[in-house]
């Protein structure tokens, strides 16, 4: 009974064995997790956010514990697009043979376009995920993802340099997520990924200073799941392009809930940090959870909640 369910899904023509994808920034370039389990069980992997130049990131402490979650302020530490292509992707190809989602960040429109043009040539990268939560250095540091116009400008620039499906990863720290998602769709985005982390802050009351060196950071983990479900629902209802749901997913039941809200695929982020086996356990629990809910084909439940 249980083994007759179908967990496969399709994302802009890319077939995945299941909808479970480790989220960018919580899974490195896969190597660390290959010690724990066979990565090929994953639907896909969204690799560490990559910028044009290598970045050290922010000063430490970069991590603050919260109730049912964590704040991070890593600051896009990465070896730069050229090193990712020459070192990280070949290393990942040795241990992972399913679709790779390349997560691209930038501090200018040109940087996004340049990185995407380079990653476009990588065969195993089947989807490009563009993180528009970074500050625009040419516009007073305002994040690209906070206005429909700048999010659309990034989308257009990226679409011009690649034929691969482009998903725009949106920040939840906005007034009207739907207008931004629609603007990306109108600019040619093939899909939307949401949500990125919620801006948060913790204070060390003994030392009377912020826990995080950079003061504020991105809050993720179980606590943000309801916010993510709500935003996925809003965006999926308003847009005609597929949505990758992300934010606080920690169980097979969460995956199904996110899909019912409108997600075609689901990313698992902070849960990987506490439990390195999180994605494996979720994937293994999916058939039973599907059987319990009378779901035969997982792809059929996307957006069933109206």
């Amino acid at each position: 009974m249980v083994n007759r369910v179908d967990t496969s899904i399709e994302l802009c023509g890319v077939k995945l064995d299941n909808p479970v994808i480790p989220a960018s920034g919580t899974f490195g370039f896969g190597r660390e997790f290959a010690e724990f389990y066979d990565l090929d069980i994953l639907g896909a992997i969204s690799i560490k956010g990559t910028t044009r130049e290598a970045r050290f990131g922010n000063p430490t402490p970069r991590i603050a514990e919260c109730t049912s979650g964590v704040i991070n302020s890593v600051g896009l530490q990465n070896p730069g697009i050229d090193a990712v292509i020459s070192h990280e992707l070949p290393a990942l190809r040795e241990i992972f043979h399913k679709p790779i989602i390349a997560n691209i960040s930038g501090f200018s429109i040109e940087e996004y376009a340049e990185c995407c043009a380079k990653i476009d040539k990588e065969r195993q990268v089947e989807i490009i995920e563009v993180n528009v939560s970074c500050p625009n250095v040419h516009n007073g540091g305002m994040s690209f993802g906070t206005s429909p116009e700048s999010a659309a400008a990034v989308t257009r620039a990226v679409k011009r340099v690649t034929t691969k499906p482009v998903f725009i990863k949106l920040s939840p720290n906005v007034t009207d997520i739907v207008s931004i998602a629609r603007s990306c769709e109108d600019a040619g985005a093939d899909g939307i990924c949401l949500i990125n982390t919620l801006l948060g802050m913790r204070i060390d009351t003994m030392r009377r200073r912020p826990v995080i060196a950079n003061k504020m950071g991105g809050f993720s983990g179980d606590a943000i799941f309801p916010v993510a479900v709500r935003m996925v629902y809003q965006v999926a209802s308003a847009c005609g392009i597929p949505v990758m749901g992300c934010g606080g997913v920690a169980s097979a039941s969460d995956v199904i809930e996110m899909m019912m809200a409108g997600a075609t695929a689901v990313q698992v982020g902070a849960a990987n940090l506490r439990n390195p086996y999180a994605c494996k356990e979720i994937i293994e629990a999916l058939p039973e959870e599907m059987a319990r809910l009378g779901i035969e084909r997982l792809s059929e439940i996307t957006g069933v909640v109206k």
Partner: peptide, 17 residues
């Protein structure tokens, strides 16, 4: 010593130069 996220190298929370 440093504050860590995962403890096994995935999150880049404890990087030093």
């Amino acid at each position: 010593e440093e504050r860590m996220g995962c403890g096994f190298g995935a999150c880049m929370g404890c990087t030093c130069r």
